[in-house]
Amino acid sequence: MAAPETVEKHTMAVLVDNEPGVLARVIGLFSGRGYNIESLTVAETDPKNKLSRITIVTSGTPMIIEQIKAQLNRIVPVHGVHDLTEEGPFVERELALIKVTGGAESRAETLRLADIFHARVVDTTPESYVFEMTGSTEKLDAFINLMEPLGVVDISRTGVAAISRGADKF
């Protein structure tokens, strides 16, 4: 039963005990076993039970993806691993802060593009804007690419947060 060698991208939600070292365990697993991390976000989501949710975007062959899930489940403080890509439709969002500088001639164009992408201005000076933008990774990439020639000087991105569609948990 040879697994096909196609590389797939998967978004996973990992529920963990919020305790010291838990993120190091997850990251160490990926680096130690040579798995790929495209994006990783973590924050406490259930303060009452001291649980954090880690959202990981990774890629690999189906056999590797299965391994990643099994290995994650083996970590003692991991409560559960949900492969959102496999379990059904889900929503994923990322937030970016983008700083753009430029002369008077490009300021109008900068604002016009931001408007098209529904990016919000969160800081402005005579020389610069900081835009806040939320959306899929692809949408953020497209906006940044368009802004690049207009003078992008710095970018901060949160990485992907994801949740399943519908009433089910995860």
């Binding site: 039963m1 040879a2 697994a3 056999m63 299965e66 391994q67 099994a70 290995q71 489940n73 083996r74």
Partner: peptide, 11 residues
């Protein structure tokens, strides 16, 4: 150990 399954050889 579920992580031993299909790690080196598909079964």
């Amino acid at each position: 150990d579920p992580s031993s399954i299909n790690k080196n050889v598909g079964v």
